[in-house]
Write a protein that binds this DNA or RNA. Structure first.
Lengths: 209, 209
DNA sequence: TGCAAATAGATCACTTCTGATCAAATAGGA
DNA sequence: TCCTATTTGATCAGAAGTGATCTATTTGCA
């Protein structure tokens, strides 16, 4: 029962009387682990792949992604973002399937138990999943170039050094600390508290704007 | 006949035995007209909207977009680019329909006959079509910030002034000519020919890199 | 306690970028 | 023919940005 609506087109047919594709979602779940970007992979009978599922009726794509992460990788994700629709009609030999690739960014604490692979070492995946990872990484990098911590990976208060380390992990390269400080300070609100308990001059704590 | 493949899942069901959505495409066709960005709108019984259609079996999304433009607006498009999937299950009262929004950029000469509306004046549209236009404009602007003429709107050879006017039309604001020149020159190849027949010192003609 | 290592953040010289100015080159009209 | 308006593209001075240096402040260890 696909639709309860009494809709009929000019030929007296319902939408479901025409061929329809199955719609799947796949998610590149990225996290920062050990100073570098990692992606969550799962294994099924065909090899390593990104977690994914078919979209159920009455469900949005984002809901399908979150369900998939919960069921296949034990992850509580937050806000899936669409990356691309893979639509080659003969992409899947089970039939007509289009797949919507997503990016999900989570703090490392949310992915305990799942299999993490460095994004540089992720190859030999099924379908277009290596492409999806590349798209996801590029998107995440663009986000962090434009804003200090759009995905909220750092708690509510943090030092500029913590933010720098995060950006270096995401960018995959070292960033100049002086320029970084100057660019970030204008986009953050400073608190009147300082970090203590670590070696060095205490660093001011900042908050997202 | 959705699939000829003998695939059955572990419950003995084919993909088409599960509920599937109809998949539609909508396209924001942008062009530069009279020094400003315009979008192609079509009118049906529910009001003004972007051209769109349901995706047929065996067809990619891009093919569906191009078919829609040919049939509904008499436009020969080039390379549709995906923008976003609109997926609210009750978005369409005819049933479960997900819609993939696209951006198509064409030179003004390709849209003779279609109804052009300034992107600033496009409102009162059905569904999320105003949002799609905004997404399309933002995407196009980002493209032209990164590259001189990624959509090939200018012929193969052009002057820096022609390129500047194009960028101003797309950006929707005036751009400094000196900085513009400096940024662009490095991304173009100069020819040894000059523009003639217009007032002023002859301008060197450039080509895309 | 005192010294070494580490970090924060200010300051400085240097580089790069920007918009303004100006000379060169052309078309069109007086 | 000559003068004016217009545009190109180079040059220049000032603004903005960059990485290096230096000082202040803390922890950890001898």
């Amino acid at each position: 029962m696909i639709t309860k609506a009494p809709y009929r087109d000019s030929h007296g047919r319902r939408l479901s009387d025409y061929p329809q594709p199955s719609v799947a979602v796949d998610a590149a779940v990225l996290t920062v682990h050990d100073g570098a970007l990692h992606v969550v992979l799962v294994q099924n009978d065909t090899g390593w792949r990104l977690p994914g599922t078919f979209v159920h009726e009455g469900e949005t794509l984002a809901q399908a992604v979150l369900r998939s992460l919960r069921d296949k990788a034990g992850i509580e994700g937050l806000q899936p973002r669409q990356l691309h629709v893979f639509d080659e009609p003969d992409r899947d030999d089970r039939g007509w399937v289009i797949s919507v690739a997503h990016l999900v960014v989570v703090p490392e604490s949310s992915v305990t138990g799942a299999e993490l692979t460095s994004v540089d070492a992720a190859d030999g995946l099924v379908y277009d999943h290596a492409t999806i990872i590349q798209l996801a990484v590029d998107t995440l990098r663009a986000d962090y170039r434009a804003s200090p911590d759009p995905e909220g990976l750092l708690g509510s208060e943090f030092t500029l050094l913590e933010l720098l380390r995060l950006h270096e992990a995401i960018a995959g390269e070292r960033l100049g600390k002086d320029t970084f400080r100057r660019h970030m300070i204008g986009q953050l609100v400073e608190t009147d508290t300082y970090q203590h308990g670590v070696v060095g001059k205490p660093a001011k704590l900042y908050r997202r704007a």
